[in-house]
Simulated assay, not measured.
Amino acid sequence: MNDFLNQIRLVADWLTSSAQWHGDEGIPARLLEHLTYSGLSLLCAALIGLSAGLLVGHTGRGAFAVASVANLARAIPTFGLVVLVVTLAGLSTAPVLVALIALAVPPILINTFEGVRGVDPATRDAARGVGMTEWEVLVKVEVPMALPLILLGLRVAAIQVVATATVAAYPGLGGLGRFIVDGLARNDYELVIGGSAVVVALALVVQAAFTALGRAVVSPGLRVSAPKS
């Protein structure tokens, strides 16, 4: 118990030290690098996952192919993919982005597809009956009703990307993972635990942000029946 409390005290001292909040290797600089990798990856994954999920969900065509590709992508080991692409393409940000995009696409794609396909067919027919085009049915009817699941997919993807972006440090790049990698190399567990705590805190902030976004944009009636996981 005393050892645990000592570790907590050491990490608290590390986090509150002014040296950790300045310079190219301080928490703000590493956090900015981490957010850059995570943000770019999530943006690319959202463009892919949302586009494919909305298209297949609305038309019903290619559902089996989407599910198969998404499950295959989900099974790819992120760290292994980073190492493979670094080996083939050389050291750059590309391997990290490819790996994180591959990780983030499946939950966005599957939840978007399931959300759109789960809309009551009678609601679609009623929308078409009043003269809506297929685009209007998608944008004005299906997307608003599927929004809880769409946001769930984005939230899951964002948290996974933020947590997994620590792999950016392994091929020699930056981000919060640098604290963990350097700490392990030096046997400095204060640095490892401190870096891990910052990553966990960032993931919790992302979780809270998406929860607040859901409350702001999802209608109360849909929010009641939305998945909680």
Rank of each mutant, 00 (worst) to 15 (best):
M1D: 04
L5E: 12
L10W: 06
G23A: 12
D24M: 15
I27A: 03
A29G: 08
L35G: 00
L35T: 10
Y37T: 07
Y37R: 01
L40S: 06
L42P: 07
L43K: 10
C44K: 01
A46R: 05
L47I: 15
L50D: 05
A52F: 04
A52T: 13
L54N: 03
V56Y: 03
G57Y: 03
G57H: 01
G60D: 13
G60P: 13
G60I: 12
S68K: 09
S68R: 11
A70G: 07
N71L: 06
L72A: 13
A73V: 04
R74T: 08
I76F: 09
G80M: 08
V83L: 14
L88V: 13
L91C: 04
P95I: 06
P95N: 10
V96C: 05
L103W: 03
N111I: 10
T112C: 09
F113C: 00
R117A: 11
G118S: 10
T133K: 02
V139G: 06
K140N: 12
K140T: 11
I150T: 02
I150N: 02
A158F: 04
A158T: 09
Q160N: 14
V161Y: 01
V162T: 11
A165F: 07
T166A: 14
V167T: 07
A168D: 09
P171Q: 02
L173M: 14
G174P: 04
G175P: 06
G175E: 03
F179G: 02
V181E: 14
V181M: 12
D182H: 11
L184G: 04
L184M: 15
D188I: 09
G195N: 02
S196D: 01
V199H: 00
L204N: 12
V205L: 15
F210K: 12
V217T: 05
V218C: 07
A226L: 10
K228E: 13
S229I: 15
